[in-house]
């Protein structure tokens, strides 16, 4: 990851992602918050491309920038009179130092420990390897995940259905 192109790319994508994540916190109108959220998810997809995880980058765009925001928008639509503003709760004040402390610890751990760096470059072809892994070593979690999705779908429908 040394050639100058990916360094520039990393800093711009990082700025985009963190910037729009902060905008989600700052902006007042909830629908704008969703739009900024989508922007940060697309930034994360860019980061995946940098880490040569091409399947995940495209899956991220498909799911996090295509499906989940639509879910959120439908939820906002179905709650019309609810407060559509993005205001803070009353007991929000102590959160800032807590989050700051958590962030500091994580960053210190990340920087201090020396991870066994690998010397190889990025991956050429990730899709087929993920596919193989999903259906060979991780076939049980794969089935459980499908059952979970089915349960979630049924649950959501039953909760919201007004017969």
């Amino acid at each position: 990851m040394d050639d100058s192109g990916s360094v520039v790319a990393f800093w711009t994508l990082a700025a985009l992602t963190v910037g729009s994540a902060l905008m989600v916190v700052a902006v007042r109108n909830l629908v704008h918050a969703v739009v900024y959220l989508i922007l940060s998810f697309v930034g994360v997809a860019g980061i995946f491309v940098l880490l040569s995880a091409d399947f995940l980058a495209v899956a991220q765009v498909l799911i996090y920038a295509g499906a989940i925001p639509v879910l959120i928008i439908f939820a906002i639509m179905l709650t019309p009179r609810a407060a559509r503003d993005n205001a803070e709760t009353s007991l929000g004040l102590p959160a800032l130092p807590l989050v700051g402390a958590l962030l500091a610890t994580i960053i210190s751990i990340a920087v201090v420990t020396d991870w066994p760096e690998a010397t190889r470059g990025g991956f050429e072809e990730t899709t087929s390897v993920i596919g193989e892994a999903l259906l060979s070593t991780y076939v049980l979690p794969f089935e459980i995940a499908s059952v979970l999705l089915l349960a979630a779908m049924l649950g959501a429908i039953i909760l919201v259905r007004e017969d």
């Binding site: 963190v18 994540a21 916190v25 709760t89």
Partner: peptide, 18 residues
């Protein structure tokens, strides 16, 4: 880590469940 921190802050302080 920064993204995680922003996520937690959002979850803790926002009034709207969405």
């Amino acid at each position: 880590a920064v993204l995680f921190a922003i996520g937690i802050y959002l979850a803790l302080t926002k009034r709207n469940a969405v």
